[in-house]
């Protein structure tokens, strides 16, 4: 109400027509908020409140003997000297640097191939590539766990049959690579679909013009298609960064198959889970989760910033 009155003098000095659209817009705003409200209520109740609650928890310490006490930032400080936590973050950083580029390059290549129209039965192929994403992560990990098995897994058996020694794909040295493979298999198709749909929205005239100028398909892909879908690629990168640091299902399932190769702190998320539910240390787990969230925000921001800078330079 107050804003309506305040707006009036301004409209009197200007064009008379402005008053009506202004009030319509306000009504639209109100309607918009009304539509957002149900989501917002759930968002606050299920995310914001728990977030604050775990933030609150992270400043305390619960001991089996002696109960709860306020410790300020002690849990956070401990995390920065906790080799288990730092090791997990470093492992995920390594994972990020190797797995994400491989997966996204694969996804981009497939998307470009499908989009070029040269691939026969592209609809079927598109579906096939996307299927791994539809397979639940639990099933996927169990399936790969079987494939990786050293005594009975088909990979090891095949290698042995052709006279090559079978590497133990679930050994402590190899398990990170095996995990990268699972995640790539699961998500390459998903990222491919995002890139592919972005490619489909590029107007065809651009290609025609390029073809008339004598550009090869490679050249078109490199100079037109990829720059045109840069926002989509950036999106997949950000998703992958977040997904990597939050890796949980795959290591926690492989943990059952290779208990000593995947430690309790293999990934930061798995560590937070074990802290909370095995070690009964909810407070420290909350602090670890918060730090992990901050790490993810920083890395995502850095990724975004660096690509934006490149866009400006280009």
């Amino acid at each position: 109400m107050a804003s309506t009155i305040a707006a009036r003098p301004r409209s009197r000095t200007g064009d008379k027509h402005r008053l009506r659209p202004g009030s319509t817009r306000r009504r639209q705003h109100a309607a918009a908020y009304l539509f957002v409200l149900p989501f917002f209520a759930v968002f606050v109740a299920m995310l914001i409140v728990p977030l604050f609650y775990s933030g609150y928890l992270s400043f305390f310490q619960t001991r089996l003997v002696g109960g709860v006490s306020f410790v300020g930032f002690a849990n956070y400080l401990h995390a920065f000297t906790d080799t288990a936590f730092l090791g997990g973050v470093a492992r995920m950083a390594l994972f990020l640097v190797i797995q994400v580029p491989v997966m996204l390059a694969l996804a981009l290549f497939c998307a470009l191939a499908l989009d070029s129209g040269w691939v026969r039965g592209s609809k079927v192929l598109r579906l096939l590539m996307f299927i791994p994403y539809a397979v639940p992560g639990v099933v996927a990990t169990l399936m790969w766990g079987y494939l990786y098995g050293n005594d009975f897994g088909p990979i090891a058996q095949t290698l042995r049959a052709i006279g090559l020694g079978a590497p133990d794909l679930l050994s402590p040295e190899n398990v990170l690579g095996s995990l990268m493979n699972i995640v790539t298999w699961e998500f390459a198709g998903y990222n491919m679909i995002i890139m592919y749909s972005a490619l489909r929205s590029i107007p065809g005239e651009l290609y025609e013009a390029a073809e008339i100028d004598g550009a090869s398909q490679w050249r078109i892909a490199w100079s037109i298609k990829i720059p045109a879908i840069r926002p989509a690629i950036l999106l997949t990168i950000i998703f992958s960064v977040i997904g990597t640091f939050q890796l949980f299902n795959e290591p926690s399932l492989l943990h059952n198959l290779a208990p000593n190769a995947i430690s309790n702190s293999f990934t930061p998320n798995f560590y937070a889970y074990n802290l909370a539910f095995v070690d009964q240390n909810v407070n420290y787990a909350a602090a670890v989760a918060f730090i992990l969230g901050i790490v993810i925000m920083i890395v995502s921001y850095v990724v975004q910033l660096s690509t934006q800078k490149r866009e400006k330079n280009a």
Partner: peptide, 21 residues
């Protein structure tokens, strides 16, 4: 111990790892 959950999970990362390695 009154904290065997922790003791066993810690076993896996220390003694268990040494056995496996």
């Amino acid at each position: 111990l009154p904290y065997m959950d922790y003791a066993y999970s810690s076993f896996n990362d220390t003694v268990g790892k040494a056995i496996a390695d």
